[in-house]
Computed example of a mutant assay.
Amino acid sequence: MVAFLGMGLLGSNFVRAMINKGGQVQVWNRTFSKAAALEQYGAKAFPEVIDAVKGATIVHLTLKDDASVDEVLAKAEPGLMAGATIIDHTTTSAQGAIDRTRQWGQKGFTYLHAPVFMGPPNALDSTGTMLVSGDQAVIARFEPALAKMTGKVLNFGTETGKAAAMKLLGNLFLVTLTGGLTDTLAFAKSVHISMDEINMLFDTWNPAGMVPARLKRMTSGNYSSPSWELSMARKDTRLMMEAASQGSLTIIPAIAAKMDKYIAEGHGGDDWTVIAKDAVPK
């Protein structure tokens, strides 16, 4: 028997997929109606989390944050089977994942943090990516079942908490990408570029394909053979800010300030990716 706690869009679709594959799932959500809605697909809903986990050898969670995970697990603990496994798909801090792995291990339970890169449709279709790290024996035992939930499991090794850090890294990229696109749209609005014109450009010119090469250049440590000099890139950011409506750009002014720092340090003639020099992991 499996229990699943947290019936948001992701959790509820995970449950539906499990049921579609023949699984029996007990569900709970803070707002009971969201759990009860899964009964039409074959789930058994409980208004109290302590009852939802009774008889379950595996308990999955998709909650909000570290605090909600700790709160819900504390309430569920009296109902947990001895030796049950807790698999937490919540996006949390790395330290939280480390602490819970230790704390629940000391109580005789297995805790595995397994965050995901996937949306609700992926959860229903069992497509996407799940991240794991830590005890490799535990991962080996559960990886086949986890792969059936997502299609792909990325194992980041023995360091507990690394999967949590990798999930935050990925989300950081998505946040900054969306912030950059927001600046792009704000600039377009200021200079009267239409969405049709933006789409025409990106339908032909796809910068997403540049990411691997750009990352390699940024982390190479060699910025002395520029394809775009930092001083010229800074000139373009000035033109962007001058053309955009006052206060409409968020990301570009911060990048311009970083460019100014490196120009002041004598890097104006280097490749503009030198602004990543001090950020590169050792």
Rank of each mutant, 00 (worst) to 15 (best):
G170N: 02
K34P: 12
A76W: 01
G105M: 00
L174H: 13
T219N: 09
G96H: 01
E143D: 08
A257H: 14
H113V: 04
K167R: 07
L63K: 03
Q246L: 12
E159G: 11
K64P: 09
Q26Y: 05
A56I: 02
Y111W: 01
A36S: 14
I198T: 06
A243C: 12
V2I: 15
K277S: 14
G83E: 01
N199K: 14
L174M: 14
M241Q: 15
G266I: 04
N13C: 11
G96V: 03
T91Q: 04
V49F: 05
T92C: 10
D65Y: 08
F142C: 09
K235P: 07
V69S: 02
S190C: 03
A164G: 09
A82P: 15
F156I: 01
G247C: 12
R16T: 14
Q24G: 07
P212A: 00
F46C: 10
A17M: 07
G179F: 02
G157S: 03
H267W: 04
A164T: 06
I263L: 08
S133T: 04
M166Q: 08
W205C: 14
W28N: 03
D51L: 10
L146I: 04
A36W: 02
M130S: 04
S126Q: 14
P281H: 00
A74Y: 09
T101Y: 06
R217V: 10
N13V: 10
M1H: 13
W28K: 01
R102N: 08
Q40H: 09
L61T: 13
N122D: 10
F32P: 08
H267V: 10
G105N: 00
F187Y: 11
I198Q: 06
T91P: 13
V274M: 02
G221C: 04
N13Q: 09
M1L: 12
S227M: 09
E143C: 10
L112D: 00
D135V: 06
A35W: 05
G170F: 05
E71Y: 08
D196K: 13
A74R: 11
I198A: 09
T182Y: 08
V53N: 03
T129H: 03
Q40C: 11
V175L: 14
M7V: 07
V27E: 00
T127Y: 06
R16A: 14
H113W: 03
Y41V: 08
W272T: 12
G134I: 04
V116E: 00
V15L: 04
L174E: 12
A188Y: 00
F117Y: 08
L61D: 00
T160M: 03
D66F: 08
L63F: 05
Y223C: 01
G119K: 06
Q136W: 03
M149P: 10
A56F: 12
S126H: 10
A3M: 10
I87N: 01
A208P: 07
A233H: 09
G11A: 04
Y41A: 15
G79M: 02
M118L: 10
P253K: 00
A140L: 03
D278K: 14
L146C: 07
L174I: 13
K277R: 12
G42A: 02
S93C: 05
K216G: 10
A3I: 05
I251T: 15
T57R: 09
K189P: 12
M259K: 02
A45R: 01
D203E: 12
S190R: 07
K189L: 11
K107W: 01
N171K: 05
D196V: 13
Q106S: 14
A186I: 07
F202A: 06
Q26H: 11
L249G: 08
D196H: 13
V25K: 07
D70V: 15
D278F: 13
